[in-house]
Amino acid sequence: MDHIFFFYFAGVIAVTSLLVVALRNPVYSALALLIMFFHVAGLYVTLHAEFLAAVQIVVYAGAILVLYLFVVMLLNVKTEERYHDQLPVAGLLGVMLSTEVILLLIQSRTAAPASAVPVDTVIAPGNTELIGEVLYSTYLFPFEVASLLLLVAMIGAIILAKKDIGEGAQ
């Protein structure tokens, strides 16, 4: 049963990620990425990360992708008539990297260690409570840094996208 779910989600993720790269129209690429985000969220549910699945849908599909679609439609981007000139070199690089990954996985198949790491907490509460507890205790400082990063990104985006900022002050 787990295998059926995994192969469904993995198959859709693989096909839609190929479509994101292959489709010439950027709107279609963004919509293929939307389907991929939903299936990644489904994969998270099968991996017992239910809270992350919800966050994936809310943040990625709800916020990030809407922003992409806004910009695509704002700029009125036409369909690409051709790919970049470096397509043969990039294809060669992709083939080389995938062979490398396949070789690595074949080598590691013989020496895969068994999962013998102890459970993080003895009593396992819900996924959300567990994440919250770890996030606000062990990873409190990175959490604060992340909030600072978001603030900087917000200010930077406003300054970059605003028209003629600072010209009136001179």
Binding site: I13, A14, S17, L18, V20, V21, P26, S29, A30, Y68, V71, V72, L75, V77, E80, R82, Y83, H84, Q86, L87, V89, A90, G91, L93, G94, L97, S98, V101, L105
Partner: peptide
């Protein structure tokens, strides 16, 4: 690994900055 490599190739072969 498959999805990552697709992303790498996509960065290299597409001309549109949004894609």
């Amino acid at each position: 690994a498959f999805v990552f490599l697709t992303g790498v190739v996509g960065v290299l072969i597409r001309r549109n900055l949004i894609v």
